[in-house]
Amino acid sequence: MSSSTDAMASPCSHDQFDEPDRGTVLNYIFQAASDDELSIFKELVTIILDNGRGRPKEAIEELRVEDVGQLEGFSALHIAASKGSLEVCRYLVEELLVDVDLVDKEGRTPLLFATYHNGGTAEYLLDHGANQDKADHDGSTLLHYAAELGNCEMVELLLAKGAYVEPVSACGTPLHVAAGKGHYGAMKILLDHNADYNKMVNGVTPLIVATDAKSMKCIKLLVKAGANLKEAAAYTTLHAEKVVSDYFLNCIMEDVDANRDVPFDGPMLKREIVTSGLISRGSNSLKNKDYVVAAKLYSKAMVLDPDDAVLFSDRSLCWLQLGDGKKALLDANRCRKMRPHWPKACHRQGEALMLLKDYEGASERFWDGLKLDPVDTDIEDALR
């Protein structure tokens, strides 16, 4: 052995250490696990740690890193797995029968840290019963961690071993995580295993996450898969200074028709996305009682889609809240003309006429609405 190995073996000599300090033993054991020094590791565990009691399994399972920090609660198996120490892993799992799913302070298993390497200890632990779907205390699974690292080989290995492709944590699914890091390769593998490209977690889809990360390759990959463009556009309108971020539009429009399986009208799609973004932002402003801004946004949307009766109904409501009965009635009349059998159009007309103090006309419109929907309590209350 080398001189450094000899030095590590010294705690096993009873001539030098009658009662070894526990902290020193712990350090030597973890160092041997890290270096895959199996003979030294065995001596430390059986002779010193277990002290000849014949219970090495219990002794080594109870031994944990005690320092406060990222490694707190680590077992020897955590150390060996994270360093790729395959011989020590074999000894712990096959000879001592240590629980392969031991958890540290954060609920993380040895397999999780083995995912930081390709093959080796990770594959060994999976072959010996490690739970590929076990999550830590934050709900993140091994697939989340592998996706975050962009470790394609590990993502493939976990999925090949039966890992669930769509576990949800605070960060979303593994596809969300990979998209947020711009890991194209990991995303491709997840999509090939039928990951849901439109999965909504905490109000965002993988496409929205990729847009926030400004990853053009990932955006185009999701668009090709069939991700919901309008949903992402609506999100960007609420979280960007412009109505629809230029970056988002440039990414999805540039060569996107060549990437889709079915060609589409690019300019038409762009118009639909912008319209959707305007409507979404207008609805948000209306909800926040910012009626002036909402009316302006609806007006811009009408330029792109002049045949949407709902836009005229919503803008009519804005004018009503701002006390402008004439504009409210004009929009309500346009709405009624487009959708003569829609009770809400009648309701809007009645409200506008009420504001203009034309109570007879308002009564007639409310009656029209109630005939179309006899159980509409809002219209009934307005008429009463």
Rank of each mutant, 00 (worst) to 15 (best):
G73M: 00
D314L: 03
G107P: 04
K214A: 05
R348Q: 08
G52S: 09
M200R: 10
M253L: 14
T109H: 05
D36A: 05
A186Q: 06
T211M: 05
Y235T: 04
A227S: 04
A130G: 02
Y116L: 15
T5K: 10
C318S: 06
Y91S: 05
C171E: 13
W342F: 12
N250W: 01
P174F: 13
S363F: 13
A362K: 07
L71P: 09
K217V: 04
K289R: 15
I219S: 10
C89T: 08
E37F: 10
A382Y: 10
A80E: 02
A7R: 12
V293P: 02
G150K: 02
G182E: 08
L63A: 08
L238P: 10
S39M: 00
V375W: 06
D15M: 11
S280R: 10
E43C: 15
S313L: 13
D358Y: 01
I60A: 01
E87P: 11
A210T: 00
D50R: 08
V303M: 14
L222F: 03
A232D: 07
G84N: 06
V209G: 04
D136E: 10
E37Q: 14
A135F: 06
G323L: 05
Y145R: 10
D212A: 13
K242Y: 07
G350W: 02
D50W: 09
T205Q: 00
P167S: 14
G282M: 03
T5F: 13
E95K: 05
V98L: 12
V201Y: 01
H239E: 06
G282I: 03
Y145F: 15
L92T: 04
R90N: 10
H137C: 08
L311E: 04
I48P: 03
D381M: 12
E254M: 13
L249K: 10
K181H: 08
I279Y: 11
I79H: 07
G107Y: 02
D381Q: 15
A32H: 01
